[in-house]
Design a protein around this nucleic acid. Structure first.
Lengths: 233, 233
DNA sequence: CAAAGGTATTAAACAAAATTCAAAATATAG
DNA sequence: CTATATTTTGAATTTTGTTTAATACCTTTG
């Protein structure tokens, strides 16, 4: 069996895992089911993936690679100034995170682990199986690349004058990324008491993007006031 | 044994669980250890908590109650306008999330579950044990209360003129909350290649808060430009 | 006060699922 | 075509969450 066939099998297992994780989530998915889905024996999954955590890291890697594609695609697109790139990024990022919930859960989980990893005092709290995974190492790079793309977009915006010059690219980009991460967690319909008003992704997103733009622009042009209108409290 | 003694035992178990979750995390903590820590038999933990998930929900509840205290405390503090309240909230929220990492993980996990819960199509993907937990129901209320506090702060700021009037309180508050959620996930030292510059919580936070303020204020007063200085790309 | 009934507690049994392993099948190379 | 390495399997093992049957304890009441 050549390396091609090997990766072939690896892919089969990965695809089975992705399908099941999407349907039932990580914990409800049994290694038995993954094997069945890939039409192999359970033991063989352990030949290609060290353990369930390693398999999850492989899934996470695929998820984060997809997100990195979003960053790259936006960054490579021609004829946009920095601000336009960032608005575009926000749109596409949110689309990706909301349309691939399981993937995004995986990314978020990785970011939590990363946060522990970057601090020597907390590193030992990470499940050793995660650190042993080859995919974890790759994820560090992918995360780094995304940050680099984003920071460059802000820098670009400062250079071309679409973003106010006193901003620091790193801090600014990380703040935007923070917003994006939280958005997905909070989105979805939220009911407020017996009132029928819901804060829903569909009517929240434009306001969210506008706020981000306001944050980056030098001057804010006031639109018509909108005070109590539509407000619950 | 009266109700007091009962809650006494419940607390003992909860405290043991919290201690262990903080030290080793949820998965690495075994029900056996929890029981040992509370100096009771393993079986008894199942008398007071239906299952491990239920116990985790109890921990999450304690975590979210602590966060709600932060919201309430800020909201009740006198002599502040809306903007000052929000800046205060951001400071205290980040302190809380960074000083209680395990608690915050639990809250974030709950927010993820909530996001599934609020959408009828995804609700069935939630582990039934979570939905059965009494603590889950309480968490819905606590989450709601936090939102209410935050939205009221923004409303207050619009009324007293410290926040620009065209903003919608709900959307604005949820956007701020998004930022806060993401901040914790991204914080910690991040290394960029061989350069020794790190984006660290300590030097990121002031810039983060400034950006949030800029977003809410009607006019942005430019400070001295800071373009390439300290920027990596 | 003693029997009855409920509540709390334990230790052992059970079950589910991840992981390991020894043996068998298959492929590859000399 | 034989020897060696790689792949694959199914069963054994282990770990750990959960259930249960038996026991101790406490409270009420006749």
């Amino acid at each position: 069996m050549g390396a091609q066939e090997r990766t072939q099998k690896e892919k089969l297992i990965l695809e089975s895992a992705i399908k099941l994780f999407m349907e039932k989530g990580f914990h409800a998915t049994k290694m038995d089911d993954v094997a069945k889905g890939a039409k192999i024996s359970k033991g063989l999954t352990y030949f290609y993936y060290k353990n369930k955590e390693d398999l999850y890291m492989a899934v996470t890697r695929k998820a984060f690679e997809g997100l990195k594609d979003v960053f790259r695609e936006v960054f490579r697109s021609k004829g946009k100034n920095g601000m336009q790139m960032l608005v575009d990024l926000v749109q596409k990022y949110l689309d990706y995170s909301l349309q691939n919930r399981m993937y995004y859960d995986a990314i978020l989980n990785f970011l939590g682990v990363l946060s522990l990893y970057n601090d020597e005092n907390t590193r030992q709290k990470i499940d050793p199986l995660i650190l042993e995974s080859v995919h974890f190492q790759k994820l560090l790079d992918i995360h780094h690349d995304c940050g680099k793309f984003g920071i460059q977009m802000v820098s670009q915006g400062i250079k071309d004058g679409s973003i106010r010059p006193e901003l620091q690219p790193e801090i600014t980009f990380y703040t935007i990324w923070s917003m994006l991460i939280g958005y997905e967690r909070l989105s979805g319909p939220v009911n407020y008491e017996n009132k029928e008003i819901k804060i829903h992704i569909d009517n929240w997103k434009p306001g969210f993007i506008k706020l981000m733009q306001d944050m980056l622009k030098g001057t804010i042009q006031a639109t018509k006031p909108n005070i109590v209108q539509g407000s619950l409290f």
